[in-house]
Amino acid sequence: MKFEWDYFSDQPKVIKDKAFKKKMRKKYIFDFLIMFIKSIFILPFATLIMKFFKGKNELKNSEFYGLCVNLDKGDEQINLANELGVKNLLIRVFLSDINNIDKYYEFASKFKDKNILICVVQDRKSIENLLLLKNNLEIIFSKFSHLTDEFQIGIAINRLKWGFFAPKEYLDFYEVAQNLRDKKFKNLKLLAPSVIDFEYHYNVATMFNFKNIKFDKISSLLYVDRRGSPTNTQFGIFNLKNKINLLYALSKLSPKSSDEIYITETNYPIINTAPYAPTSQKECVSIEDYTKFMLEYHKIAKKSGKIKRVYWHQLIAPGYGLVDNRDDKIIKMPQFYAYKKMINEDFN
């Protein structure tokens, strides 16, 4: 079995079959070549002009802060979310678990007076069978359109372990969602392309495409530097601020997207929490640094005026969340209280 789920870290397990990965990438070599050619022209140009695009006015805290909650983490999340005062929640709905759609709906319905974003998580069957995808998306849209008008289509599209082998597969996937929306659910807003980490060549490949599609809002899983502060840099100049600047520039330049950006997943892995941490031990940080970096991250993103919302991933998760639930105990960590204070204050 190529795709297995790690219930400790809430993500797919790494695919260790190198021959399989090489075969799948070779299958789409032309797609990757197109991505490379686009990127060598678009990314340098966007970098040169990114500072010329000015952000918008800062949003209210109730609009900006968001949090990820999961069905499998239980109803304890309802009171915890209310205690924090967070108004925006992201809930994953797995296409592989479509038979339990009623459980997801019941869970989401329990969060009263919250703005819900549904993240539709792909599986390989739906990527390969677009008719199956259409049927399952219609079930999801029909069920949740009474609660929300926002749906993130896909997640971590640049990680083979999540199911997509190339940008083309994702664009075909998204096209099914958009066509269905345009035909039967015209009021819905679709978020994409959900690229994880600072791999903006995948943003270029998907945001500058030749299909008759458009992303209503940009979703990004922007993990900046898990070994340190959001002020740390990659490739010389790209700290969190400049990664946001570049992403915003791409959204402004793209004819296939709006300039409204949601960061729909980010966090820091916590030291000494294996196997719950989503990374290796060397990439984990202390509770003190986690809290500090979390506050820095939100402050930078909010002050940029270029990010409409940040969803911290997630409320309950021993390896990277705000609450530890090991041994059937609910332990509110220091970052829980720091998050609560942050979203109920304005930055100076």
Rank of each mutant, 00 (worst) to 15 (best):
N187R: 15
K252V: 10
N242Q: 05
Y223W: 06
T231Q: 02
A249L: 01
A205T: 03
P230C: 06
K243A: 06
K184L: 15
L180W: 12
L250Y: 00
V195G: 05
V195N: 03
L190T: 04
I196F: 10
N232T: 11
V224Y: 04
I263A: 00
G228K: 05
P255H: 13
H201S: 07
L222H: 04
L221K: 02
N209F: 05
F208M: 05
I213R: 07
F238P: 02
K183P: 13
Y223R: 08
E260Q: 12
S229E: 04
K214N: 14
F208C: 09
A249Y: 03
G228L: 10
L246K: 04
R226I: 06
E199W: 12
S219C: 11
K214V: 08
D216K: 04
S254Q: 09
D259H: 12
I261G: 06
G228T: 04
T233F: 01
L180F: 15
N209S: 12
S219N: 14
N209V: 06
L246P: 00
N179Y: 12
K241N: 09
P230R: 01
R227T: 14
F210C: 08
P255E: 11
L188E: 01
K217T: 02
K186G: 07
K183V: 09
D225E: 08
N203D: 09
Y262V: 07
Y223G: 05
V195Y: 00
F198K: 03
F210H: 08
K183F: 05
N232V: 00
Y223K: 06
L180G: 02
S229Y: 01
L188M: 04
N187Y: 10
K241Y: 14
K184N: 15
M207S: 02
N232A: 10
D197V: 04
F210M: 11
N232Q: 11
K183I: 11
K256F: 06
G228A: 06
G236P: 00
Y223A: 05
Y223L: 06
A192I: 11
K241Q: 15
L221H: 14
N203S: 06
L253V: 09
Q234L: 09
R226W: 12
L222K: 01
D225P: 00
F185V: 14
P230M: 04
L221Y: 03
D216M: 05
L190Q: 08
E199Q: 15
M207Q: 03
V224W: 01
N232K: 14
S194W: 02
N179K: 14
G236W: 03
S220E: 13
D197T: 09
M207R: 07
K183A: 13
D182T: 13
N187G: 07
Y200N: 07
L247P: 05
K252F: 12
K256M: 12
K211P: 08
S220Y: 06
N203K: 00
E199N: 14
L221S: 14
S220M: 11
R181D: 06
F208N: 07
D259F: 13
L190K: 10
I244W: 00
Y200D: 00
